[in-house]
Design a protein around this nucleic acid. Structure first.
Lengths: 202, 202
DNA sequence: CAGGCGAGACTGACCGTTCCGTGTTAGGGA
DNA sequence: TCCCTAACACGGAACGGTCAGTCTCGCCTG
């Protein structure tokens, strides 16, 4: 199923020979996003991505351990950087998840993220790529922020970080995958508000 | 992809010939759950379910329009009936989703529900079966309950029913699919509490 | 000359469908 | 009442098409 560690996503640069083509990689990711948006998870195939990108399947498997991992990478590229959070707690929490909302609010991004989430839930490698991104870009900053808010007694201390994470991410993921409804502007801000009302100090 | 309406899940009984075997159906659902739990969504196949149930693939396609629809049916059978909700609002909301928690708290149910959710997100027929169940067993009772609570001024009126649904279901689905962590006892009660704190009337 | 590249063949698995031979049942004729 | 027969469910098996992942080729780049 998953490929061994001799298929690194970042090649070592201490050897002879040509370097891997970032141009091919970008073309593959671009083609993958288009195929994901047009055909969904089932209708999507490695061959169709390779053909669309004018690349060989081997090149895909040189960069990613599985097709699912590539899906997740392709989707993550659509997610913009987090804005500098404002001053009040609600804005700062919202800032952590608003990039997801921004990506999900386009028709293209909605479909691409859906496929990536299915891949992450289904494929071991894809799940690791996804969880690594969430850990770095959301979970870790959220941990720091909540610790600060708790220290300032803005929120109580009796929360589990992962429960909060699921309360913030679960609804938008549900909307992307199961209900497939459009994501309204302010959807993420609502989740942040809900969290703060739930855990407000008194 | 999806099969036409000449493959009813409940056969009409105004004709000659033998009746469909509920024994076979039950064996198929049982085998499907075992395969789902053991092999996940990708590792799972129609052939393996048929072989395990000592049934023919045709029998499966006589009962369900697609393999995904069968997955959802198999998983729904694990979800117990909702208990009679208590008296206070928190208990009554919790009662609506606690059956899901109960099913998800067993290792078997956790894996089976995960596959069913992926099927529902991926397969058209499976999605319809799932949404029909949610609509009947959760969304509709929730609608009545929230209307009553709003009338009694327990909660505000400025909510979207589907947003509330996603706030209640999203976290547990996220836990089942993406994070794959065990579902703690009281997980659903926490979601109900969070909702009430968010929408409490002042 | 090591190793990336596109192209494409290949393996093994799976899906959805179809056919077959056997059994089972409701309804109708005697 | 009895049995005959058409209709259809059943398990088993096969088929055509598709796909993931691997491998080989000949070319090209650094």
């Amino acid at each position: 199923m998953s490929t061994p560690a001799d298929t690194p996503s970042t090649p070592s640069r201490s050897r002879k020979g040509p370097t891997r083509s970032e141009v091919s990689k970008a073309a593959i990711l671009e083609a993958a996003r288009d195929e994901m948006a047009e055909n969904g998870w089932r209708g999507f195939s490695v061959d169709s991505v390779a053909k669309r990108a004018s690349a060989s399947k081997q090149t895909i498997y040189r960069w990613w351990p599985s097709i699912g991992a590539m899906c997740v990478d392709a989707a993550l590229a659509l997610i913009p950087d987090a804005p500098d959070g404002g001053r009040d707690p609600q804005e700062r929490i919202t800032a952590l998840i608003i990039p997801l909302e921004a990506a999900a609010r386009t028709g293209h991004g909605h479909a691409v993220l859906r496929v990536a989430l299915l891949a992450a839930a289904d494929d071991k490698d894809a799940g690791e790529v996804w969880r690594a991104w969430v850990g770095r870009d959301i979970r870790q900053p959220l941990r720091m922020l909540l610790a600060e808010l708790a220290a300032k007694r803005v929120i109580r201390r009796d929360f589990e970080l992962d429960d909060v994470l699921e309360q913030l991410l679960g609804p938008i993921f549900h909307r992307l995958t199961i209900s497939r409804a459009p994501v309204k502007e302010g959807f993420c801000a609502e989740q942040a508000t809900a969290f703060l009302r739930t855990y407000a100090q008194f």
